[in-house]
């Protein structure tokens, strides 16, 4: 067999990076509904690493795997436009309320269903929770090693992979046998943009649910072009033990959530004129803020 079989784990997240004024409610808290849903940034970087391996190794396939509500199919399309070969959406009401442990259980079952594979790539963490837990937990459940904080795939052969890792205070290059789960750090290169040809090719890629809900009639198109089918897997498809899913499978519970309220304090507004700056500096010196 030529090339590698790569699975990229991705998540659709609310864009918490750009909480502008429009997204703030009158009471100073964030209006989550006003935040756009995006492809988690580090997951996009993981996709890029997969696509680079595909560029170098003909025959490589890249499968996107995501879990979420029906609209999360958007990021699979986004991945197809950039060079992924197909995508699977794990979606079921029974997953609602899953913490990282329950999520990693569901993902590990989906990965097992996709075996054999050579490599699993994912972002280090998602910007809505910043936990960085699902990758290592899924690796443990599948029983393969993990390499976290990948900045670059240095080399890959049928037997092993070399990864440069970005650590807090330095870098490290490690070698692991395949298959392995690799999480990609924010310092890795950005993902390539959409490809115009692929955009045309996959414009009508949809899940079964989307097709049923849609008003457009592309049924014939989907029959003629099976690559336009985004697969949907439910609890039954995964043969999952429901005890380990959703709220019952989640040992962590949210006891309380407090909205961070940004209150305006009395602030002095100054211009950039010389006398204003000098006065400020003198004041700071007087009250020993600076010495």
């Amino acid at each position: 067999m030529k090339g590698y079989k790569i699975i990229v784990l991705a998540k659709q997240v609310p864009d918490t990076r750009n909480v502008g004024k429009d997204a703030m409610k009158a009471n100073g808290t964030v209006n989550r509904a006003a935040l756009p849903a995006v492809f988690n940034p580090e997951d996009l970087k993981a996709l890029e690493q997969a696509l680079r391996i595909k560029d170098e190794n003909p025959g490589t396939t890249v499968t996107l795997l995501t879990m979420g509500p029906g609209r999360a199919a958007e990021i699979i399309r986004e991945g197809l436009y950039r060079g992924a070969d197909d995508g699977i959406l794990i979606t079921d009401r029974k997953f609602a309320g899953s913490d990282t442990l329950a999520t990693s259980y569901a993902i590990s079952l989906a990965i097992k269903k996709l075996s054999p594979y050579d490599l699993i790539l994912s972002g280090r963490q998602a910007i809505d929770g910043d936990t960085a837990q699902v990758g290592p937990q899924a690796a443990e459940k599948i029983g393969i090693p993990q390499i976290t904080y990948c900045e670059e795939v240095v080399a890959i052969t049928k037997k092993s992979i070399q990864i440069k890792r970005r650590l807090e205070r330095g870098v490290e290059t490690v070698e692991a046998p395949l298959p392995v789960l690799v999480t990609v750090h924010g310092s890795a290169p950005d993902c390539r943009s959409r490809n115009a040809k692929l955009l045309m090719k996959y414009k009508h890629a949809e899940t079964v649910t989307e097709r049923q809900d849609g008003t457009d009639d592309y049924l014939e198109l989907h029959d003629a072009r099976p690559y336009l089918n985004i697969h949907e897997w439910t609890v039954d498809d995964l043969n999952a033990d429901e005890e380990w899913l959703g709220l019952s499978g989640s040992p962590t519970k949210v006891k309380k959530v407090t909205n961070v309220v940004f209150t305006a304090k009395e602030s002095k507004v100054l211009g950039d004129k010389d006398d204003e700056i000098e006065e400020l500096i003198q004041e700071l010196l007087e009250n020993h803020t600076i010495g």
Partner: peptide, 30 residues
């Protein structure tokens, strides 16, 4: 800019103009 809401002092101006002045007047007054 939202940062001004939590700032004790908000200087409205260009960083490239303001910083040299701060350096200059710090040196003069310290």
């Amino acid at each position: 800019a939202p940062i001004n809401n939590i700032a004790d002092y908000a200087i409205i101006g260009d960083v490239g103009d303001v910083l040299p002045k701060m350096i200059k007047y710090y040196k003069k007054n310290a």
